[in-house]
Design a protein around this nucleic acid. Structure first.
Length: 850
RNA sequence: GCCCAAGUGGCGGAAUGGUAGACGCAGGGGAUUCAAAAUCCCCCGCCAGCAAUGGUGUGUGGGUUCGACUCCCACCUUGGGCACCA
């Protein structure tokens, strides 16, 4: 009897697949196509067990679809621009290109042994000049269609390093390297006009039926459509008016102040003559630029001393405050505060002793707001107090509409639809990104580069000695001729946000070497992505940007209309987690241990070196600093790729996190060994050996084909695997004939082939299957073979299970009821009385209500 | 703070509104073995009971239903996102 040795099996079959070239995607107009794509990785240099799970899911789909007769496209590439390479350059002096391509080579080396059915001939990295050159060309197209523009925007500025910081580089308001307090600074930056598509991006969400509902909801909330009104407040000092956007004009009766953003033009104007205000604004500008930082910060304000006229009650004045919580980017950068019906306004009013007055009560009550704002759902009916628009007890939704009409009729404001979605700022003051292909000319202004000069390549002779963008202080790179007038000019030194790179790579995979961004015949055939798989962390930005980009590409002729929603189906998978093993010293400091230093006994952890007990924190996100990272390379060395593939899909539903455990991985390995031995045993049977229970075995086989197929189709990989376990147990115990057992083990291999393709090929070959299992058609379940003749029905009394009966599956309702009522347990419970009600769900259950 | 999601045995989890705990791990018992490894068989939510069986049980508290892990409301905890991490 031979042993299961993946180290021999796996390279052998990988070679066979390569030789047969079966993973090369071919445009075959006689076949339906299937495009499966997993979010491409950032080339960190090491594959992570999370990648293993992500790409194995895609691989299961790709292999399954191929065996169902589809022409499959399953490509792989690299999201290769970004900050880590630049940080490495600053640290070690290595050029980001050298660093990145080195990482790509290493990572690819680690990916190959996984046996994923990837078409490597289409591989590219976003930092390849061929790729970002096409991206630059599209930028110029977008520019000509008015989809890109420049405006001022705030960035995190590190005054010591003299550089722009990403949000994650701002820690507690200070730069991560310099430790200096970060300032907000305005720069002229490039923007994509995604806001022009707000309504369309929102409405089209309804059509994305194969996307998770939660992702569509998150995107809808992000786009944030609201119906409201711009209300004009006249300044008492005669200096004009302040326009406030509000979604709750119905609460105007309770308005007690106006709050404007520190960046509001009026605030800036007043700042010049008011030192205290200037100091307050400067303080506000030290806050980070993230919305989270704004929201979490303590709400503070500064009374400008100005007042405005209340538009409804003209003899009533409202003070104008500058508030650190008002966003200049949203609405008009000014709001009116109604403390009674907004908790934030209420906190603000209590802090600065501003009036609090109800605009409505809940019907039948008259309790004035004290410490808690009255904020019922807008659909709930409320009782407006003495309302200027004449409304009484109605829902707030109706109240808002009536109030907007009232304002519009008196020309005091203008109803409007507002979106939260802001334009996409793509400028980065960094080196390692695609250069924005424009030129600044003294005479002609901002001029796009000529397409024949593309790609504008990143220079190799750069130094990272100085902080900031090396393109800025490169001696010659900036110098160029104006594409318009030919006079000396200088290049834009900003590069593109890496989200731009990942917003169209899926389209490029359809024709990765084309001389234009896309090739019409190829995109027509391959687009859309039939199944996209990636992390939930990309639910909003990456996916929304890609949806915008596809529309913009369509406008510029790079994608057909049918591809403006590029991802037909989306699946968001969970993380792979791992326990943290640690000890905590008296001063609270923690020491982390590697899994190999720890022995687990009944869920408790002990150090191998001295047997002392340590803390075990289960299901933690893997992190190098916590020593709980599992290295796929080691797993493959120990157990082989099939075990790794099997385990990451077997234990948890794919959308949820899965905990990597050594015992679980070992169990997967043992199971694959069992299957191997079973195949060996069946192979050794006399080919005409008789047996008993052929029908039972084949019935179980067809049920399993059905269940596994459904499982794969619906991303229920863990459930499909459980069915395979169960069927393997059935087969191992079967006394059926050699013919039936052989048929069963071949089907078992086929059902396992998307998950453990190497083992499946080997079994297939051993049992004399023809060709490669990877090219064999998927088995079909025979419905007629699946059905049992009898069903077991549980009998409930008042909803609690008390007995069960076995009846023919097509027995009539009446007969089932008769048998159920004559059951001993039912008779006993009835005690001679007749039941109130009997519910018979055919094939399911009987419930007797007494 | 705001938006989204998830909570079921010791652990990972299964369950078109219809027998809660499939399948796997850990644990216990047994077979095989000189012994071990490997392999195979059986048991395994909790409480009471020798057992038959009964009670109880899907984060917490309410509700809808003949029947709720599943639907509705409120809360708690954990995770993801918050526009320059990718």
């Amino acid at each position: 009897m031979s042993r299961y040795t993946p180290a021999d099996i796996e390279p052998k079959w990988q070679e066979a697949w390569d030789k047969a070239g079966i993973f090369h995607a071919k445009r075959d107009l006689n076949k339906p196509k299937y495009y499966v794509l997993e979010m491409f990785p950032y080339p960190s240099g090491r594959i992570h067990i999370g990648h293993v799970r992500n790409y194995t899911m895609g691989d299961v789909i790709a292999r399954y679809k191929a065996s169902c007769g589809f022409s499959v496209l399953h490509p792989m590439g690299w999201d290769a621009f970004g900050m880590p390479a630049e940080n490495a350059a600053m640290k070690t002096g290595v050029h980001p290109a050298e660093y990145t391509y080195g990482n790509i080579a290493e990572m690819k080396e680690q990916m190959r042994p996984m046996g994923w059915s990837l078409d490597w001939s289409r591989e590219f990295a976003t930092c390849d000049p061929e790729y970002y050159g096409q991206q630059q060309s599209m930028f110029i197209d977008f520019l000509s269609k008015g989809l890109v523009y420049r405006k001022e925007a705030v960035v995190n500025w590190d005054p010591v390093d003299m550089t722009v910081l990403a949000n994650e580089q701002v820690i507690d308001g200070c730069g991560w390297r310099s430790g200096a307090a970060v300032e907000r600074r305005e720069l002229t930056q490039w923007f994509f006009k995604i806001s022009d598509f707000s309504e369309e991006l929102l409405e089209a969400l309804d059509g994305l039926e194969d996307w998770p509902e939660k992702v569509r909801l998150m995107q809808a909330n992000w786009i944030g459509k609201s119906r409201g009104i711009d209300i004009r407040f006249e300044r008492r000092d005669g200096g004009g008016e302040i326009i406030c956007y509000s979604t709750r004009p119905d609460t105007m009766r309770g308005a007690s102040f106006i709050a404007i953003s520190p960046d509001h033009p009026l605030s800036k104007e007043l700042e010049a003559a008011n030192h205290d205000l200037a100091a307050f604004n400067a303080e506000c500008r030290k806050m980070g630029t993230s919305e989270e930082a704004m929201e979490k910060a303590e709400k503070r304000g500064f009374d400008t001393g100005l007042t405005v006229k209340h538009p409804v009650y003209p003899d009533h004045d409202l003070p104008v405050w500058v508030g650190n919580f008002v966003l200049m980017d949203y609405g008009t950068g000014a709001v009116f505060g109604c403390p009674a019906h907004d908790q934030r306004d209420l906190d603000f009013a209590r802090k600065y002793d501003l009036p609090v007055e109800n605009a409505f009560y809940m019907p039948g009550t008259s309790n004035d707001v004290a410490d808690e704002a009255l904020v019922p759902a807008k659909t709930e009916t409320v009782a407006y107090i003495d309302h200027f628009a004449g409304i009484g007890e109605v829902s707030s939704t109706e109240g808002v509409e009536a109030t907007i009409d009232w304002f519009e009729a008196r020309d005091l404001g203008q109803g409007k639809v507002q979106y939260r979605l802001r334009d996409w700022g793509l400028s980065r003051q960094r080196f390692w990104g695609a250069p924005i292909p424009v030129v600044h000319c003294d005479a002609c202004g901002v001029v796009p580069e000529k397409k024949e000069n593309l790609p504008i390549e990143l220079p190799m002779d750069v130094s990272f000695d100085k902080p900031g963008n090396p393109l800025d202080h490169h001696p010659t790179w900036r110098d160029c001729a104006c594409p318009n007038c030919g006079k000396p000019a200088s290049r834009e030194t900003d590069t593109m946000d890496t989200f731009v790179d990942s917003s169209w790579y899926f389209a490029r995979f359809t024709a990765p070497r084309a001389e234009t961004p896309t090739d019409a015949a190829e995109v027509d055939y391959w687009m859309n992505v039939d199944q996209y798989i990636g992390g939930i962390e990309h639910a909003i930005l990456h996916l929304l940007y890609s949806r915008f980009f596809a529309r913009a590409m369509h406008i510029c002729g790079h994608l057909p209309k049918s591809a403006i929603e590029p991802f037909d189906a989306l699946f968001t998978q969970g993380m792979v987690t791992h326990a943290i093993f640690q000890t905590t010293a008296q001063d609270g400091r923690k020491t982390f241990y590697y899994p190999e230093e720890v022995e687990l006994r009944e869920g408790r952890g002990f150090l191998i070196k001295d047997g002392s007990e340590i803390e075990v924190i289960p299901s933690a996100k893997m992190s190098k600093s916590k020593n709980n990272v599992v290295d796929p390379v080691k797993i493959i060395e120990t157990f082989g790729a099939d075990t790794a593939r099997w385990f990451v899909l077997s234990d948890s539903p794919p959308e949820r996190d899965v905990e990597w455990t050594a015992s679980g991985a070992e169990a997967s390995f043992k199971f694959l060994g069992r299957v191997w031995n079973l195949c060996d045993k069946i192979g050794a049977m006399e080919s005409d050996a008789k047996g008993t229970g052929d029908t039972d075995l084949l019935r179980a086989m067809h049920k399993t084909i059905h269940d596994v197929t459904m499982g794969v189709e619906s991303f229920g990989f863990n459930a499909a695997i459980a069915k395979i376990y169960a069927f393997t147990n059935t087969l191992a115990k079967s006394k059926a004939s050699a013919g039936a057992q052989r048929e069963a083990v071949m089907v078992l291999a086929q059902l396992m082939s998307p998950f453990t393709p190497h083992l499946a090929e080997d079994i297939w070959a051993h049992q004399g299957g023809s060709g490669l299992i990877a090219e064999a058609p998927w088995p079909r379940a025979d419905e007629a073979m699946m059905a049992d003749d009898n069903v077991t029905l549980p009998i409930q009394i008042n909803g609690k299970r008390r007995a069960e009966i076995s009846v023919p599956k097509d027995m009539s309702r009446e007969e089932v009821e008769k048998i159920a009522l004559s059951d001993q347990a039912v008779q006993k419970a009835l005690a001679g009385a007749s039941p109130k009600k009997v519910i018979v769900v055919p094939g399911r259950i009987v419930n007797v209500v007494i």
